[in-house]
Design a protein around this nucleic acid. Structure first.
Length: 487
RNA sequence: GGCCCUAUCGUCUAACGGUUAGGACGGAUCCUUUUCAAGGAUUAAAUCAGAGUUCGAUUCUCUGUAGGGUCACCA
């Protein structure tokens, strides 16, 4: 009776009808966080009862998505467990067994109508502006079910239901919510409505978490549980993630992206989890950046919002950056390497040492690692790997002239030349060059041409950093080249 | 149309019935700086509307409005 003392068992039960998107993932995530917080059991079950909509490869894709996010499960696909198999198409006998029990009780019957007949009932209801209810056409006498017709549930008692939802609170629905829905389809597969109940019972699920679109069908499930004399699990419905445009539930057709695309774009799984958790949930503190463990510790069903929330890419980018900043140097470098094109890696200017030195520079400039590829090959940091084309006009500082620029560049060369290879560090270069610039009383006429001859860009990292990364030889030779162009 | 759910800055959200309605993203302004990036500071910006209950309502109740969900041999 007291569920608070029962071990928490939840499940994520996707259908293999395509890729995972942010909507499905959030259901998976919230159930996961709640289960881990309660040291419960998290089950991955595949609900593949619709063979028409099934998309090959989906299961692998779902598993890969969960693994990427770090959402691990204790029982289910791949790992197995005491309730195997975990794919509904492998459990048909079980659903049939439950169906037979309902038939014996007189609570299930074959649908006697043709598709066309049912369709005309539906049309009629629609024309009369009423909800379609099959039970209004329930036959007087039930035939014997031979498996060629859909098997329908006979609602034992037409009444109102009220129940508690862990997120939405007390809910209720009138008798219109009940109907003689299909338990087993004519192809022999159960419907979701039936299969999930059977599996949840068999697997001992204590809390069912799913999107709020299931609120309206909950009375049907309750009537099935009631007819079987089994206590239903706790329910926790989740508000929808809405598409940015249009305030509609975010689905694949509304631009919901394949989760693995985020991986390809260089988002971090922890950032993704963090972001998703914050849509519709908030711990009530002012913390925004969470690690997975922090989310688990702080998670609370009671704090889940009951209004739908929108997906805000800019906040995701910001969070991703926050998580990038929290990574250690080695991991940052590894991610950058992963996103560097082969072309860059084969360039003569490319070296592990140089890569190592530009990590902090790159990290400062990206929100997601996918930006690295372009940035280093043909973007704002490409000068690290290829000699820039320097525009002599732009090279000259606005308050200076050609002669003065040549003069200053030569002086810079001279100063840098005095620094030994071993001491060619950011600090040393900066100290010496700044001393010269300040003595001149015009930093711009020194720093601008120096920076410009090394990078060829009007906007770039500071010249000291660049010089220290390029090394003494390359720095001097780039300046040399530019002086040559000017003359 | 029936049934159901929801409603705080542009967005994500916080606020035992009592707060100058708080934070974050994004925006704007400023500082730092040769430039960019990063960083720091400041700032604009919200309780859907109307009744009711109450000394007092973002919070409770009702009505309206708006948005969403559902009414499949889909999940």
């Amino acid at each position: 009776m007291n569920d608070n003392h029962k071990k928490v068992v939840t499940r994520f039960a996707p259908s293999p009808t395509g890729f995972m998107h942010v909507g499905n993932v959030r259901s998976a995530l919230f159930a996961y966080l709640w289960t881990r917080k309660n040291k419960g059991t998290y089950i991955l079950r595949i609900e593949d009862t619709d063979k028409v909509r099934e998309v090959p490869g989906s299961i692998e894709h779902i598993i890969e998505s969960l693994e990427w996010l770090g959402i691990d499960w204790d029982e289910g696909m791949v790992v197995g467990g005491p309730h195997a198999p975990y794919k509904q198409s492998d459990r048909l006998d079980l659903y049939n067994k439950y169906a037979q029990k309902l038939i014996e009780k007189g609570l299930a019957y074959p649908d006697p109508y043709t598709n066309e007949e049912v369709e005309s009932f539906r049309k009629k209801a629609e024309e009369e502006k009423r909800a379609f209810l099959f039970r209004e056409h329930r036959p007087e006498k039930f035939d014997v079910w031979d498996g060629t017709k859909p098997l329908r549930f006979k609602v034992p008692e037409i009444k109102s239901y009220s129940w508690h939802d862990e997120v939405f609170g007390d809910l209720s629905a009138g008798p219109e919510a009940l109907d003689d829905f299909i338990l087993i389809k004519s192809d022999g597969y159960p419907t979701y409505n039936f299969a999930h109940i059977v599996d949840d019972i068999e697997m001992g699920i204590t809390l069912v978490m799913r999107g709020q679109e299931y609120i309206s069908s909950t009375p049907r499930y309750l009537s099935v549980y009631e007819s079987m004399g089994i206590k239903p699990p706790l329910y926790a419905c989740l508000p929808h993630i809405m598409a940015t445009e249009g305030n509609k539930k975010m689905g694949k057709r509304d631009g919901a992206k394949d989760l693995l695309e985020y991986r390809a774009e260089g988002y971090l799984p922890e950032a993704m989890i963090n972001f998703l958790a914050l849509i519709g949930w908030n711990p009530g503190t002012e913390q925004e950046v969470f690690s997975k463990q922090e989310l688990i510790d702080a998670f609370d069903l009671k704090k889940i919002q009951n209004a739908g929330g929108g997906f805000n890419d800019e906040k995701l980018d910001w969070l991703n950056k926050e998580h990038i900043k929290k990574m250690n140097y080695e991991d940052q470098e590894e991610m950058i390497t992963k996103f560097l094109s082969e072309k860059i890696k084969n360039l003569p200017q490319f070296s592990i040492e140089r890569l190592h030195n530009i990590v902090p520079i790159v990290i400062d400039r990206i929100k997601k690692f996918g930006e690295v590829t372009e940035m280093c090959e043909a973007g704002e940091l490409d000068f690290f790997f290829s000699v820039p084309n320097v525009d002599p006009v732009k090279l000259i500082w606005k308050k200076s002239d050609k002669e003065n620029t040549i003069l200053n560049l030569n002086k810079i060369k001279e100063i840098l030349n005095e620094i030994s290879n071993d001491n060619f560090t950011l600090e040393n270069i900066k100290e010496k060059i700044m001393a010269f610039a300040d003595a001149l009383g015009d930093r711009g006429s020194v720093l601008h041409p120096m920076r410009f001859s090394l990078t060829g860009l009007e906007r770039s990292p500071d010249p000291f950093t660049v010089a220290s990364v390029l090394g003494k030889n390359e720095t001097l030779s780039r300046i040399e080249v530019v002086v040559g162009i000017l003359k």
